[in-house]
Every structure is written in structure tokens, then in C-alpha cells.
Amino acid sequence: MICIQQLNYAYGKKQVLKNIQLDFNENQFSVILGRNGCGKSTLFKLMAGLENIQQGSILYAGRALTQFKGKDKATLLGFLPQFHKTVFPFKVRDVIITGRAAFSRFHPSKEDWKLVDQAMADLDIEHLADRAYTELSGGERQLVMIARILVQSPKIILLDEPTNHLDVYYQSYLMKKLRQLSRQNFTVIAIMHDPNLAFLFADQLFFMRQHEVIQPDPRSKVTDPKFLKSVYDVEFHEAMIQDKTIVVPDHSWL
């Protein structure tokens, strides 16, 4: 679905992406992991068309994003940035309908509102429909913003740190929903910090370190403590929970 080749990017003289090469498979839940400042958010901005490509290419089913306009772009790609804030107390359903702006302008049709109802049902947030967005918890707001993307019916959903600032319940709930969406004809790609959540729910895992993509030795697992130390600069220990492997930071040096 997405092919990134020889992608380089710099802010002035500061190189923030170096020779990025990635392939994201269609209808899977993929996660990019890495420390703060390694280039993950800049990569997403380029993928979403918010920054101009300086060198290299990003192709969506063989086409550059600049070849998609208006409705075609809206049905290709939905993007949820790391930070979003609304200061006006709009009702949740009115926030979600703005995701149909590329299709209906300022006159939503009955079909547009049906899509809003369907998105709320898919995320189990129908009970929030008439609540003011500004009164919601962080987890509820995140689900509303994802519903806003769903009404676009995009093939690809990009989420920059979707579990950030969420409690344990909403982290688990949201990850399950994202995995479900990838099984419902969406290609879901997220930036995350927590490797364990990614290990438990994602289909594809990619790692970034110092502005480059790195992968473990083919003979090693992604949970290999030595590899993870190279990503996070922290010692890890592996642990088995039922049939799943998680990792625990080593705090013995504290």
C-alpha cells in the first residue's frame, strides 16, 4: 500500500531523516517505535503531505500523494496528529461530521450523517453523540477524532501517538479497535512509545534510531533485549505472559 524509498529530510542543516526505506502492507496494523527526536513525527508529516519531500519518494499504491486531489485524497488518507485541541463546546456528532467536509462542504446529506452514526457505532461511542467535546476525557476525545477520520472512509489511517496521555483502559481499548479496523479494509499505521502495546497488537513493527530505520538481526526476535537496548538505550528483560512475550526495563542501575 505504501512504499517509501531513499527518503531524506533536513530542517536547515539538521538532518532528521536518513535514507528511509519502508513498505507498509495493505490492511494491516503497523507501528513505528523509537525514542523522542528520532524522526518519527517528521516522517508522518511527510507521509500526510504536511511537509514537502526534499529527496526520495513516498508512493501510495504506486502514486505520489500530490497526484491525489480533494475527495480522492480524503478517501486515500486520514491523519490524526499528536496534538489536537478544540476550545469551542461543539457536540461530538458535529465534530465528527467535519470529517465529511471534502465531500459535502457545508451541507451534509443524510448519507453523511449515516456515516457519522456508523463511525460512532464502530467505536462504541454512540452515548457521547450529544456531549460537548470539551467535556470529554482524553480517551473519549481520541475516539471521537478517530471517528472523524472514519467518516472519510480512507484506505489509510495515520495516527501519531494515539495512546499518549490515555489511561490503561483506553490504551487497551483503543489498540483493540485499531487492530479491528485493520481487519475491516483499513491500513492502520501508528507511531508509539510503548513497545509492549505494539508487541501485543501490531502486525508489523518498525524501529527508528537517530533518524534511521533499523531492524533486528533476521535470526533475532523484535523483543530481543540487545536489539531493544540499541533502540532505547535502556536494558530490558523478556517475560512471557501466556503465549505473548513482553519486555521489562531493567532498573537495577537506579
Rank of each mutant, 00 (worst) to 15 (best):
R179S: 14
Q180F: 14
E135K: 14
R148H: 02
D122I: 15
V95F: 06
H107Q: 13
Y170G: 09
P162L: 10
D112N: 08
Y133C: 02
K110V: 09
H165F: 09
E126W: 00
Q142I: 06
S182K: 11
L158S: 13
S153P: 00
I149W: 09
D94R: 03
D117G: 02
G139D: 01
R105G: 11
V144I: 11
Y170T: 01
L150F: 01
Y173P: 07
I149A: 10
P108D: 13
S182N: 08
S137H: 10
I96K: 08
S137P: 03
K176Y: 06
E111A: 15
D94M: 00
G99A: 12
L166W: 03
Y170K: 00
I191H: 15
L136G: 03
M175W: 08
I146D: 00
D130N: 15
L158M: 13
N164Y: 14
Q118D: 15
S104E: 14
I96A: 11
A119W: 11
F103M: 10
S104L: 11
D112Q: 07
Y173F: 15
T98G: 07
G139P: 11
I156Q: 01
D94W: 00
M120I: 06
V92L: 07
Q118I: 02
S137Y: 07
R141I: 07
L123D: 00
R179W: 05
Q180H: 13
I156K: 08
R93I: 02
Q142G: 01
L115K: 15
D122V: 04
D124N: 14
A147S: 14
Y170W: 08
V116I: 07
R100G: 12
T187Y: 11
I149G: 02
Q180A: 15
D130A: 00
K155T: 14
L150D: 08
F106R: 10
M120E: 05
D94A: 04
D112H: 09
I146E: 03
D117C: 10
I157S: 10
D167N: 06
L115N: 08
T163M: 05
F106V: 06
T163R: 05
R93A: 04
L128T: 00
I125K: 07
I97E: 03
F186N: 14
T187R: 12
K155P: 00
T134K: 12
K114L: 15
K110Q: 13
L178W: 10
A101R: 09
A119C: 01
I156H: 03
K114G: 01
E126P: 01
Q142S: 06
H127R: 06
K176S: 08
F103Q: 13
V188K: 04
T98Y: 06
T187Q: 09
S109N: 06
D112W: 06
M120H: 07
D112F: 08
Q184R: 14
A102P: 12
G138E: 02
D117M: 05
V92K: 09
K176G: 13
W113I: 03
D112M: 05
V188M: 03
I157E: 03
L136W: 05
D122Y: 02
T134I: 13
F186W: 01
F90S: 00
I189N: 12
L136K: 07
D167E: 02
D112A: 13
I189L: 15
Q180M: 15
V188L: 12
I191E: 05
R183D: 14
I149R: 04
K91W: 04
S153G: 00
N164V: 10
P154W: 06
K177T: 09
K110I: 12
S137D: 02
Q118H: 14
